[in-house]
Every structure is written in C-alpha cells, then in structure tokens.
Simulated assay, not measured.
Amino acid sequence: MKEIMAVVRLNKMNQTKKALTEAGVNGFYAHEAFGRGKGLVSSDLLEGAKEGFEEAVELLGEKGRLYSKRVVTVVVPDDQVSDVVEALIKVNQTGKPGDGKIFVTAVPEAHRVRTAEHGDKAIL
C-alpha cells in the first residue's frame, strides 16, 4: 500500500475529485493548507525577514506570501499508484509555478475500525 499526498490549487479541486474517481479511488481526504514553493525568493532574504530586518520584509513583498492550497490524501494498493499519480498530474498541470507537488510514501499497515479488516482489504 502507498499513501499519495497531493498539494493542488484550490480551483482544481472539482477536477481532481473527478479524476480520482475515474482512476478508481473509492475514498480520499482533502484539507485546507497554506504554503509556497521556492519561487523567486532567496533563503538569505527569508532569513533576513525572519530576523526582523525591515528591508528584507519590504523586498519580499508578495513573494513571501502563503497561498491557499488543498492537500488531497489517498491510500491505494501498490498496483494503483501510477494510475492515480498520472491522473493527478494530468488534471493539475498548467505549466505554471504553483501547480503543486505529489508525494508517495509506503504504508506498512491499515485497519478498518468497523470490520477489523486489515491490509489491502481495509482500503478497498
């Protein structure tokens, strides 16, 4: 089993939900998040702003801003990972900064509380 966590644009959520359903995903979680990518901000500038240097804060302007995102999390069997990742990329890729990230991690075990099923049975 693998956990797929995708950070996506707010305005792509409806398309993302549809793409996940079409890729055979039965259930997933989504929650609000705020963040930013590396963008055009240097680490020196961020460090200066963190230390309270007004010049650094002014230079950051909009570049240091946190943007609203959605984090979608799904756990799928190993054989479904590539289909889900491809579906997420296809629907969220605009070619512009801020398209998001996808992280895939191993899930050694899962249990369904209601039925006590475990392993792949718990997520299908």
Results as ranks from 00 to 15, higher is better:
Thr94Phe: 01
Pro108His: 14
Thr105Trp: 03
Val104Arg: 13
Gly24Gln: 13
Gly48Lys: 03
Val41His: 00
Met1Phe: 04
Thr73Phe: 00
Glu86Asn: 09
Gly98Asp: 00
Val41Pro: 08
Asn26Ser: 15
Ala19Thr: 08
Lys63Ser: 04
Gly61Trp: 00
Val57Ser: 05
Asp78Met: 04
Glu32Met: 10
Phe103Ala: 12
Val8Gly: 01
Ala122Trp: 09
Ser43Leu: 11
Ala56Pro: 09
Asn26Tyr: 11
His118Asp: 12
Tyr67Ala: 05
Ser43Glu: 14
Lys17Gly: 01
Pro97Lys: 10
Gln15Lys: 13
Gly100His: 12
Ala56Ile: 08
Lys63Trp: 02
Glu62Trp: 08
Arg9Asn: 08
Glu109Met: 15
Gln80Asn: 10
Val107Tyr: 01
Leu124Lys: 15
Arg65Thr: 02
Asn11Ala: 02
Thr105Lys: 04
Glu54Ile: 11
Pro108Tyr: 14
Leu40Ala: 06
Ile102Asn: 05
Ala30Phe: 09
Ala110Pro: 10
Leu45Ser: 14
Ala6Thr: 02
Gln93Arg: 11
Phe28Gln: 06
Gln93Phe: 09
Asp44Trp: 04
Lys101Gln: 13
Val81Met: 05
Leu46Cys: 03
Ile89Pro: 00
Gly48Trp: 03
Gly61His: 00
Asn92Tyr: 13
Arg112Gln: 09
Ala49Ile: 01
Gly39Ala: 05
Gly24Ser: 14
Ala23Cys: 12
His118Cys: 12
Gly48Gln: 08
Gly52His: 03
Asn14Gly: 08
Phe103Trp: 14
Glu117Asp: 15
Tyr29Ile: 00
Tyr67Gln: 09
Gly100Trp: 11
Ala19Ile: 04
Leu40Ile: 05
Gly119Trp: 11
Val25Arg: 06
Arg114Asp: 15
Val76Ala: 01
Val81Ala: 06
Gly39Pro: 00
Lys69Pro: 07
Thr115Val: 06
Arg114Asn: 15
Val84Tyr: 02
Lys96Arg: 09
Leu10Asn: 11
Tyr67Leu: 10
Lys38Thr: 07
Ala33Arg: 03
Glu62Gly: 14
Val85Pro: 10
Lys96Ile: 05
Phe103Asp: 14
Asp78Gly: 08
Leu66Met: 12
His111Asp: 02
Leu124Tyr: 15
Lys17Trp: 00
Gly37Arg: 03
Ser68Glu: 08
Lys96Phe: 00
Val75Gln: 01
Lys63Arg: 06
Pro97Val: 12
Tyr67Met: 02
Val74Tyr: 07
Gly35Pro: 06
Ala23Phe: 10
Met1Ser: 05
Met1Ile: 01
Val104Phe: 12
Arg65Phe: 03
Val41Gly: 02
Thr94Met: 01
Ala30Gln: 08
Val84Phe: 07
Gly24Lys: 14
Val81Thr: 09
Tyr67Arg: 10
Pro97Ile: 12
Leu66Pro: 02
Lys38Asn: 04
Ile89Ala: 04
Thr16Pro: 07
Thr115Lys: 07
Ser68Gln: 03
Lys2Pro: 02
Glu47Gln: 08
Ala116His: 07
